[in-house]
């Protein structure tokens, strides 16, 4: 077994890593430009306004979410990569398995249910407006309000980093991850408020959370790259 750096020896990791910038670029394109879920439209819209929202953005919602439901497994590829790096830590693999499990749960209520609801709403523009308004709530509340699956993931990752003696990720990133748990908690009131900072389009529930997620992900992608670069090429790690 050679310890020399060998790029071809990690090509599967590099394929997974490249999924990250591509997936998050598509994610931004889909949620911001095409489907208009980010920044979210107001929870206080009337039934008629919600109908008008879907009528106006119908085509781009359909294009955007049709794309999302094809590329969504990018998230699964990435959680595999993170779990693999967590298995290289000095901690027992329990956290790595926990990371895969929580994100595999989160993908459905936290992302795909939003797409399914918007797509069902746009599928029949002549549907009863009250049903369309309900699908709108289902989509936005599931997307912004799926707290636990992601909080659990951030918690597992943060504890793993803090306990890890192999220093796969720097300690400060554990605190970035802990801040993500705080933002998930701050998004909890979206189930209660229709106006103000704690509504699903509010300054705290949405903008603060999204900004911190942006910080988190733009730290995490380079850190994953560094972790892959620094690891010795090996076959079949234990």
């Amino acid at each position: 077994m050679t310890a020399a750096p060998d790029r071809t020896g990690k090509r599967d990791l590099w394929i997974c890593w490249w999924t990250a910038p591509v997936f998050y670029l598509l994610f931004g394109l889909i949620f911001v430009l095409l489907t208009r879920v980010m920044p979210p439209p107001r929870p206080s819209m009337s039934t008629a306004q919600i109908g008008a929202f879907f009528a106006e953005h119908r085509t781009t919602i359909q294009i955007g979410f049709a794309l999302l439901i094809v590329v969504i497994a990018g998230s699964a590829v990435l959680s595999g990569l993170v779990a693999y790096q967590m298995k290289r830590m000095s901690v027992q693999p329990v956290f790595a398995y926990g990371y895969i499990a929580t994100l595999a749960v989160g993908a459905v209520p936290g992302c795909l249910l939003c797409a399914i609801s918007f797509l069902t709403a746009t599928f029949r523009p002549d549907r009863d407006p009250h049903q369309i308004a309900m699908l709108y709530d289902v989509a936005l509340l599931s997307f912004v309000g799926s707290l636990g699956c992601f909080a659990a993931q951030y918690l597992i990752l943060a504890i793993a980093i803090l306990l890890d003696k192999n220093k796969i990720f720097p300690t400060w990133f554990a605190y970035v991850s802990i801040w993500q748990i705080v933002t998930e908690l701050l998004a909890a009131p979206v189930f209660i408020f229709k106006h103000g900072p704690f509504a699903w389009n509010g300054a705290i529930a949405f903008y603060e959370g999204t900004l911190l997620f942006g910080v988190y992900i733009s730290c995490f992608i380079p850190l994953l790259r560094k972790a892959i670069q620094q690891q010795p090429s090996e076959r079949l790690p234990a």
Binding site: D12, A104, V105
Partner: peptide, 15 residues
């Protein structure tokens, strides 16, 4: 080279 695809596969299968 590594077992990463097995973990990604597991995640995609569950969802």
């Amino acid at each position: 080279p590594t077992q990463v695809f097995a973990y990604s596969y597991l995640s995609a299968v569950v969802s």
